[in-house]
Write a protein that binds this DNA or RNA. Structure first.
Lengths: 411, 411
DNA sequence: AGAAGATCTGTAATCGATCTCCCAAAACGA
DNA sequence: TCGTTTTGGGAGATCGATTACAGATCTTCT
């Protein structure tokens, strides 16, 4: 008995073999396989039987060549090893899988050249869609995509022109929530470590930070309290060290992503200082670890999985022919309050004993609204132990694939 | 001025257009593009100029159809959102990228059916190679792969038959190191939460645990101290709760992966107990967070990035024609000692354990204290080679341990 | 000079599936 | 019965690159 899908000659089973076996033409086989209803049921059955017997699998390359459309999406992101993007990728993959598309994974490392290479690859591969978390994409390539009818959506970050569909998190609101929270907890000397200002995520988070300060009538103590990092651990560390070296230090810092938060935290510890008694920290991005780091980290949690899933749905709808005006889905981040912003100890800002575990902050805190952050009556935030995938919190209704409970942490 | 790569008719620029523009035949264009040295330099230059002017990009579909080889690898793993696999993926992607291959990403969620689907996809896509972190692959599909000359390697986990190249971590040794360390720190009542026993990772880690106990003349207190988890956070939590519910509890637990460690830690905290005074914990897998969780976690760190990179190199060498006996690359894990195994507190609260060795108060948490174990008994590990690998354990010793400078945490 | 190589270059078959034509047969109407 | 419409299905062109083979040109040697 020979292996499935291999014919006598050792080559691949082709549509011709099937047609032969079923005593019909290749056209008929193709029609049956593509669900053309006009075929005689009897013949269709015969074809099906032949297909099964031979273990025939159509060649995607041939189909792609003929139809000029590969059932493949290119997924172009800065770095899979960043948990934020990782979760996004899962969201995308789940939607893509259930719609029958596969993904080509492309890490740009925020390098414009690699990004360009991958966009060209996407064209050469005839992918039918592209999901791009842009760094600094070549506009002419984007245009070429569009003129070649390749659907393309952005995710996580916007590109300048705003001519594409996209799914984003409301970063301004997220940063505002964080600032409101810090102020409510009594911090007054706030600093911000944000990301590169050529990314919308970097800019928006800084904008939200500044806007919330302004709205609350609080001034920035020192221009040097605004630091531009690189979204990496090393950058977070460096910028935090910069802050610590200032003559007058901030008492609270908003750090604009997960890796920089890590670096910042390490810098604080390395300096022999304590969080939050010497300095409070709010991070961006939640992770399963944030609840058990020392101290547990208050953060602006982004619905990364849903972000990915939403972008995938946008892409899907474009591929399936939707052609309305551009749509941008804006998801709402959630402030998760933990101990790294426990509040200014009423006693002087000196050192207070070892890690004050167990200061369970009473969650009376205002200024943590969803959305605009200017509504005084709002739901209180509680630390939800289960990571990310909290339900609700976004503006769109159906989230079909919730990807049940920790599915697949398998190793 | 028209967009690059699009010709007058609005269609894609093809090799024919280039041939036309350069005044040569398509064969010559193809030769130039594929670096056939026999072409006249003058002509080659003319072709190159035409290529540039037209923005020509060869169609991968056509090339794939003709050569029956897509410059694509299928990467089939349980779950990208597990940091361990994420790092592996990065290692693989970097090698693939620099060799000019792209990756199709496939998450199986440890589901045999999805795994099967993706293996079939790989065949249909004519991928030239597959990297598989197996769950329970259909042997007949593997055979078909081989008979169709699709290169395939395994990574992270072995499959039963051992008929494939693969890159693995020495899990037995890793678990042994962990146990030796726990014993040296004075713990005597050890338990283990391992993974599904149909994975080699689950089995090997348990084997190492048992072997080290035996070698040290320590008995397992209770058969219930061996727990089979599911490699997920929920499973780690559940099994730890199981341990805590026992009449006599262990004083130290080895947990066989990152997510279960997280769950286990949360279970301990939820029970109002402390690590390490009430219970020591050693995890598997390091992460940037492990150094700052509370308490900092001792763990067996796996070189996940290199694991991926090695598997990619194995695949590459097969694709490029290597046809020796099967090779298995075995990487050595590293014990990172932190505070979660600080040693039995002298006022042993619950039970009176046997005498212990001195407590080491100072602890490395830089994450760089590679293998600085305090256990003289520990077997020194050298790059191990599986029986089937004759020579050349060292031919790859100089793995350019990738990824310096924290490449790409960008967001 | 002429023959035998050596070196380029072009022609055309080929990969496998899709899909436009077009024909044959069946169904229908008068 | 004959003409017209409907329907099912086959032949073959086509997608774009690769490559075996053949032809053309240039060397080199007798």
């Amino acid at each position: 008995m020979r292996a499935r899908g291999v014919n006598q000659t050792g080559g691949t089973t082709t549509i011709i073999d099937v047609a032969h076996a079923a005593g019909v033409s290749t056209a008929t086989v193709s029609r049956v396989l593509n669900g053309d209803s006009r075929v005689n049921p009897t013949l269709a059955a015969k074809v099906q039987r032949a297909v099964n017997k031979l273990g025939y699998r159509p060649s995607r390359a041939a189909r792609t060549l003929r139809t000029q459309q590969a059932r493949v999406w290119a997924l172009i992101i800065p770095d899979v090893s960043n948990p934020h993007f990782t979760d996004m990728v899962r969201g995308i993959e789940d939607v893509a899988y259930s719609a029958g598309y596969s993904l080509i994974l492309c890490n740009t490392d925020a390098d414009a050249e690699k990004e360009r290479t991958y966009l060209e690859l996407a064209l050469a591969e005839h992918v039918v869609g592209v999901i791009l978390a842009p760094t600094s994409p070549d506009p002419s390539l984007i245009e070429e995509m569009l003129s070649r009818k390749v659907s393309i959506v952005t995710v996580d970050r916007r590109i300048a022109s705003g001519m594409l569909d996209g799914a984003f998190v409301n970063n301004v609101a997220g940063a505002e929530q964080a600032v409101d929270h810090l102020l409510a907890r009594g911090y007054r000397h706030l600093a911000c470590i944000t990301g590169p200002t050529d990314t919308t995520t970097g800019r928006d988070r800084l904008d939200g930070f500044m806007a919330a300060l302004r709205r609350n009538g609080v001034e920035l103590d020192d221009p040097a309290f605004v630091r531009i990092g690189d979204f990496r651990e090393s950058g977070g560390k460096r910028e935090m060290e910069g802050l610590l070296a200032l003559p007058v230090r901030p008492d609270a810092v908003l750090v604009a992503n997960n890796l920089m938060t890590l670096g910042a935290l390490k810098a604080v510890v390395a300096a022999g200082l304590e969080v939050p008694s010497d300095m409070a920290i709010v991070g961006f991005d939640d992770s399963a670890w944030n609840a058990i780091v020392h101290p547990p980290l208050t953060c602006v949690a982004q619905p990364a999985y849903d972000l990915g899933a939403e972008s995938a749905r946008l892409l899907l709808s474009r591929i399936e022919g939707h052609s309305g005006p551009n749509r941008e889905v804006m998801l709402v981040p959630t402030l998760r309050i933990r101990e790294s912003t426990a509040g200014r100890s009423s006693r002087a800002p000196t050192r207070s004993g070892p890690a004050m575990r167990g200061i369970r902050p009473s969650v009376d805190d205002t200024g943590s609204g969803v959305g605009r952050g200017d509504d005084p009556a709002r739901a209180r935030q509680v630390d939800t132990v289960s990571p990310s995938r909290r339900s609700g919190a976004n503006e769109r209704r159906d989230r079909a694939t919730g990807r049940t409970k920790g599915a697949g942490g398998t190793r």
